[in-house]
């Protein structure tokens, strides 16, 4: 099996307006920057980007372009706003969230992680103690009031839990340090973060890898994401990030 595409543009060619794409990365660490740039160039509209911990605060240029090109319908994340309110007021994403032109739906980070894990593992929903006693328990936390809804809760063994649903995005863009042609991936250090669970959760997973090797060149013990979860591969140069948030 060879999953390597001749170009990044061909690897994302079938992504249509309205698609839901999982974007891993923890701030500036492990973000699929080349694939984000490719979707900006393609101009796909009405996108829902489902994240985990602020990759768009790491890939700031890409976020600005996506917002300014009107490509985003919705972002789902646990952390997507600048910490500083004054910096937030200058941020085109926060401005769009305030205006209600982009929906921003927020969950606790561990709930985001479990939504992908469950989605990739055939579990449609799960009870979690996280968020009990906060607005997270009452309903979906979103800037669009009409979408807030109710969440189910249940007492199990005397403790209260919130029902949260799995996520199965249409696509996942993942970034790996190394991959072989059959899609086995290995990540570097803390750049692993959301990459593996998103690869497993999405219907189509597209992996950008810094180092592409032949099948058999990776030891099976070194594989973090088995190739069964990865559908398309492309090789990209190592991205450069400024390591900062504020």
């Amino acid at each position: 099996m060879d999953k390597v595409f001749p170009s990044i543009d061909e690897a994302i060619a079938d992504i249509k307006d309205g698609a839901m794409i999982a974007v891993p990365g923890f701030f500036a660490c492990g973000v699929p920057r080349a694939l984000l740039q490719a979707i900006i160039k393609k101009g796909t509209k009405n996108l829902t980007l489902t994240c985990g911990c602020g990759p768009l605060l790491g890939a700031t240029d890409e976020l600005k372009a996506l917002v300014q090109n009107g490509q985003l319908k919705k972002v789902i994340d646990s952390y997507g706003l600048y910490r500083s309110a004054s910096k937030g007021m200058q941020d085109p994403f926060e401005q769009a969230v305030r205006a209600g032109t982009i929906e921003f739906e927020v969950y606790p980070m561990g709930t985001m992680a479990e939504k992908y894990r469950a989605g990739g593992a055939g579990i449609p929903a799960f009870y979690t103690p996280t968020g009990v006693g906060s607005v997270v328990e009452e309903g979906i936390v979103t800037n669009i009031e009409a979408n807030r809804g109710q969440k189910e809760t249940r007492i199990i063994n005397g403790r209260k839990y919130v029902l949260e649903y799995a996520l199965e995005p249409d696509y996942a863009f993942v970034h790996a340090y190394m991959g072989d042609r059959e899609g086995n991936l290995r990540y570097a250090k803390t750049a692993r973060n959301f990459n593996h669970v998103m690869a497993a959760a999405a219907r189509v997973t597209i992996a950008e890898v810094e180092n592409l090797v032949d099948s058999g060149a990776m030891d099976g013990d070194d594989v973090h994401t088995p190739g069964i979860y990865v559908h398309r591969m492309i090789q990209v140069p190592r991205p450069k990030f400024a390591i900062t948030i504020d």
Binding site: G80, S134, T142
Partner: peptide, 23 residues
């Protein structure tokens, strides 16, 4: 700790805080 109402947004940065509290 996750949201200051003075910012005027219903949404905010929850991050890992609620999971750490729960666990």
């Amino acid at each position: 700790g996750w949201s200051n109402p003075a910012r005027g947004l219903f949404v905010g940065n929850i991050g890992g805080s609620m999971d750490l509290c729960a666990g």
